[in-house]
Design a protein around this nucleic acid. Structure first.
Length: 308
DNA sequence: GTCAGTATTGGCTGAACCAC
DNA sequence: GTGGTTCAGCCAATACTGAC
């Protein structure tokens, strides 16, 4: 079928349904009624001779054909958008858009308050959504457009996922002021102590445990939890130790707590910002990326100053 | 079974386009 | 300018699904 015989607006609807996973939510985003979106999907189904989305419970799940189409469709729509926007730019003061960020616990507290305080007046129509995405799903989520940016440790991801190092720093150990090891912490004492591990996974070692295991060491994880806030509250009330990147520790409320340098010989953690290359040319995405990068760069600078 | 949320369908309206 | 045709979008009704 020649493109001249095709209503290109149907691709806008297609993209919205794919992103939202729902005709109702797509209609809200597009400022249409839900039946209008349903009709548009019907026309698209008719022209492409494929259901494109099938209902699975409360979600509209894309078919194989839809999954194959989404990347080129978004690429083309991005191109159209750039043609329409002045100088290919992005006016944050006028834009109405929701950006989805994949942030692990700890980074949320570091990034979101500073980002939102900038956006409140400067970009009143910009909304942010932060969620935890498993590392296994990250590339898929970025490629589908359900996720705009993600920040995590260095990962082996497909070539289509671009990344940039944003935060790096040594590991530190957090303990309460009255902890027996507050006077001095060495590796044998660290290994003999009991620890809190913050992880969103059900099981498996933390990143520092991999490093320790390579050197033949193993530590005793007494508590495994999902959020740093819970871990810190526990460390405030017990003799458990919490090992974390200095890049995160600097941002947290550490009342009654002290930080010690990690006693072992482990490299620090380097955090990277990830996005799909299809998004690279999107002015809105580029604007957000630059803001996040600038913010994290500033925080990295402050971290270095504080450590000096 | 009932209810709420969501998708689909049918009928209608209005705008756009085209031929005359 | 007028009338016919097409099509997108609206409202209302109905069907489907999952939760309780």
């Amino acid at each position: 079928m020649h493109v001249s015989r095709f209503d290109l607006n149907l691709f806008v609807v297609f993209d919205a349904i794919y992103t939202e996973g729902s005709l109702t939510r797509a209609a809200r985003v597009l400022n249409l009624t839900q039946p209008a979106v349903s009709h548009a999907l019907g026309r698209l189904r008719d022209r492409l001779d494929d259901p494109l989305f099938v209902r699975q419970g409360a979600r509209m799940v894309p078919t194989v054909r839809a999954r194959a189409m989404i990347s080129p469709v978004r690429h083309a729509l991005g191109g159209f958008q750039r043609c329409l926007s002045e100088e290919g730019g992005f006016d944050a003061s006028e834009a109405e858009r929701t950006f989805v960020l994949g942030l692990r616990d700890g980074l949320e507290g570091r990034l979101l308050p500073a980002l939102m305080s900038q956006f409140m007046d400067e970009a009143p129509g910009i909304r942010l959504q932060s969620l935890t995405v498993s590392r296994r799903q990250m590339a898929t989520e970025l490629a589908s457009g359900r996720l705009d940016l993600a920040c995590d440790v260095m990962l082996a991801l497909p070539e289509a996922i671009e990344h940039q190092a944003v935060l790096s720093g040594p590991l530190v150990v957090m303990m309460r002021e009255s902890h027996p090891l507050a006077a001095g912490l060495d590796l044998p004492a660290y290994l003999a102590a009991q620890h809190v591990l913050v992880s969103s996974r059900r099981e498996g070692p933390g990143l520092e445990d991999f490093g320790l295991a390579r050197q033949g060491y193993r530590r005793h994880i007494r508590l495994r939890c999902q959020h740093y806030q819970a871990a810190i509250s526990t460390v405030q009330q017990t003799d458990l130790l919490l090992t974390m990147p200095a890049t995160l520790a600097g941002q947290l409320d550490r009342q009654g707590l002290i930080l010690k340098a990690f006693p072992g010989d482990l490299p620090g953690l380097e955090m990277h910002l990830y996005w799909h290359r299809d998004q690279s040319a999107d002015p809105g995405h580029s604007w957000l990326r630059q803001r996040v990068l600038a913010l994290l760069k500033e925080q990295q600078k402050q971290l270095i100053v504080n450590n000096e």
